[in-house]
Design a protein around this nucleic acid. Structure first.
Length: 281
DNA sequence: AATTCACCCAACCGCTTTGGC
DNA sequence: AGCCAAAGCGGTTGGGTGAAT
């Protein structure tokens, strides 16, 4: 027994949307808002399945979409985010206002993949294409997140998602990087930067920690050294500068204290991380 | 001018996740 | 706890378009 179809396919249109269909969908959503995609087609007088309507709206008709070419900054941001998140296009799109996951996915597959390959970087791993697989593990870019602040002595160790290179392997990483640089004849800072994204998240997801009673129940984003010698907060390193979020020393707000938890990338300042909010655009 | 090829992107498909009962 | 419908997501496909021959 197969999966039941999402809609009555016999009476639905497929393929490219017509102007009239677009107009109907826009008019309906303007009046009634988004939601209940399954019943929307009938209510709006469209011979489309709900999924198709949703996709058309989200990827093409939404008024807040930014059309047009990607900027160089957007390119670099996508590359950085992809190195952290992998093919989580919706998460990546969440950091690029006006861009859709589908658009970014297409752009990645048609432009950025080639761009990285031309630079000698494997788009999947963000490592030089000649890298031996076994070396990848020790240098994987990682994020460590602490989610739960309910302290419990008996709780198991946290699951760790780490975007930051762990300290215990730092020396190994550096040695390997130097070896790679030598092998690949990488000498310029720009070339090195490709393999060492200037993102360093400390983000730990896991059960309660008990060893630090005043541990801030959130993420402390390590400030990143700038080429110029200053520091840049995580927000700025992602290119999502915002006066409210930015903790860069460069904008006049110096250093973090215990109450200053840094950029609230995952929206957890007010308590335990709502993991699901990470997933939502 | 006609044909072939490569590229791009909108749309589809099927699986997973979520939420209500 | 389990079931089911709806929504969300990521991979893939197919048609349109422009460049090359």
């Amino acid at each position: 027994m197969g999966r039941s179809p999402c809609c009555e396919k016999a009476h639905t249109n497929k393929g490219a949307w017509t102007k009239e269909e677009d107009d109907r969908l826009i008019a309906y959503i303007r009046t009634h808002g988004e939601g209940c995609w399954r019943s929307l087609p009938k209510a709006a007088g469209l011979l489309r399945c709900g999924k198709s309507c949703r996709l058309r709206w989200i990827n093409y008709l939404r008024p807040d979409l930014k059309r047009g070419n990607f900027t160089e900054d957007e390119d670099e941001l996508i590359i950085k985010l992809h190195s952290l998140l992998g093919n989580k296009w919706s998460l990546i799109a969440g950091r690029l206002p006006g861009r859709t996951d589908n658009e970014i996915k297409n752009y990645w597959n048609t432009h950025i993949r080639r761009k990285l390959l031309n630079r000698g970087i494997d788009p999947a791993t963000h490592r030089p294409v000649t890298d031996h697989p076994t070396t990848t593990n020790t240098t994987t870019t990682t994020v460590t997140t602490t989610v739960n602040n309910n302290h419990n002595v008996t709780s198991p160790p946290p699951d760790i998602i780490s975007f930051a290179t762990t300290k215990t392997t730092d020396h190994v990483v550096k040695n390997e990087d130097m070896e790679q640089d030598t092998k690949l004849n990488i000498t310029s800072p720009d070339q090195k930067q490709e393999r060492c994204p200037d993102l360093n998240l400390e983000l730990r997801i896991g059960p309660p920690q008990h060893h630090s009673s005043n541990m801030i129940p959130s993420i402390s984003y390590m400030q990143q050294p700038l080429m110029t010698g200053g520091t840049i907060c995580f927000a700025c390193s992602l290119g999502v500068q915002d006066n409210k979020e930015c903790r860069c020393s460069t904008n006049g707000t110096s250093g973090n204290n215990n109450n200053n938890v840094g950029f609230d990338f995952f929206k957890i300042k007010n308590g335990a991380l709502d993991y699901r909010s990470l997933e939502m655009k």
